[in-house]
Nucleic acid binder design. Structure first.
Lengths: 227, 227
DNA sequence: GTCATCATTTAAATATCGTTAACAATTTTT
DNA sequence: AAAAATTGTTAACGATATTTAAATGATGAC
């Protein structure tokens, strides 16, 4: 089972400990930070599936943090946590592009339900646990990172498999570079773009002999997997 | 612009009137019902993009209603509204498959923000935004920069696609050169104007065989796409 | 620590696109 | 009708984007 990665910003140590503990019990992988700056740094370096942000934070508050995150990734779910029950703040948070705003004290169960709602809605949890695909005479087992040709088995790396899965699940439509990058890498910058090109190149090589699938560039936009 | 259809269940007539009015001002199409049974009947008969359900309802309460709706449609966003601030109820609602739970009195702005969040997250906003056009026997998929003739597929570049889309969405009216240039190029100068002419020329070539569409010059003013 | 593996970055070759120039055709003005 | 302005089309150019191989860096197993 896939472990989802949560970026968690909270400066109240006791609350953070409890929350993190509860989430980890539910098999989430939680990276916790006590100030906005460190949190943003982590976001820029690592991949996360969802962000849970306190608003009152040292160095950079939750609003600024959310704004910075949204700029890099338009799609990642963001949930605010706050002691402030002010309607103004709630609205402000949602306007910035957050998905929800839980008022402290919140029940851990509510938080977990919300996390799952947004993981589902942002397609991080695949409703159909489909992980087995057929491309012409080639089979692809995404769970096991495995390509099965007639006799031969090729192991893919995680990135290769993730990219291939993304392409197959969005076949025959143009995927923008930005969309691919935020889906797989969590953000969108120049060098990640070059990296994507390398992986596309590898997939092409693997499927070179297979006429029924191709990974076509759409200049200036992104790629389209035709099959 | 596409109008989203909201299924709204609320037995408090005054509140319902106000809410419906506000939502309609924002261009949503609201179907309002005062009891659960009628609401479910409507859901089974018509298409809706999102459901907003009060919990205390005559004949069939919001929880039952949501359960019935979820059974028919696993994906449609459901937002509960309730005067009950009981945490138990909130959790129960979310467990049933609702996406959110607003406590009355809620601000109309918050409701609207939430509606938009879930329309986006359930891909209603981008997916159904019109990006598919038919011109005589030719189809144009603007999202994928694709012209589909009988057998043949022609890939357009971004500019070509943008210009064609602009023409189609303003068919049979004269578009001033300046308007096209600022819409697509962001500014208006002599050489960009010549560039526009080149793109018009390319579109004409693509549709040369198609009698049902033409890109006509209006001397000294701009162009008109007739179809 | 060393090695192996994979992801990222660099760099150089290659391809594509939007722009521009040139000239022909058309329309408008004089 | 001639001159001027505008438009239509083609082709070439330069900027930008893409491809690929190869070098480098990071991570985890042993």
């Amino acid at each position: 089972m896939k472990q989802f990665k949560i970026l968690y910003a909270e400066d109240d140590a006791a609350l953070a400990f409890l929350t993190k503990d509860n989430l980890e019990l539910k098999q989430y992988k939680v990276s916790h930070f006590t100030n906005g700056q460190d949190c943003l740094k982590a976001f820029n370096k690592e991949y996360f599936d969802i962000c849970i942000l306190d608003i009152m934070l040292p160095k950079m508050d939750g609003f600024e943090l959310a704004t910075a995150i949204r700029k890099k990734n338009a799609d990642i779910p963001i949930i605010f946590l706050s002691a402030k029950t002010l309607n103004e703040d709630k609205i402000k948070g949602l306007r910035l592009g957050a998905d929800d705003y839980l008022v402290k004290p919140f029940s851990i169960e509510e938080l977990i339900l919300k996390i799952n709602i947004f993981l589902k809605r942002s397609n991080k949890i695949t409703a159909s646990n489909n992980n087995f695909y057929e491309i012409g005479s080639i089979k692809f087992d995404s769970e096991n990172y495995l390509i099965i040709k007639q006799e031969e088995k090729i192991s893919l790396t995680q990135r290769e498999a993730d990219l291939l899965k993304l392409f197959i699940e969005n076949k025959n439509i143009v995927l923008k570079r930005e969309k691919i990058l935020t889906a797989l890498w969590g953000s969108n910058d120049y060098f990640l773009g070059r990296s994507l090109d390398v992986f596309v190149s590898r997939l092409r090589k693997i499927f070179a002999a297979e006429a029924s699938i191709s990974f076509d560039n759409v200049h200036g936009i992104g790629f389209k997997c035709s099959m």
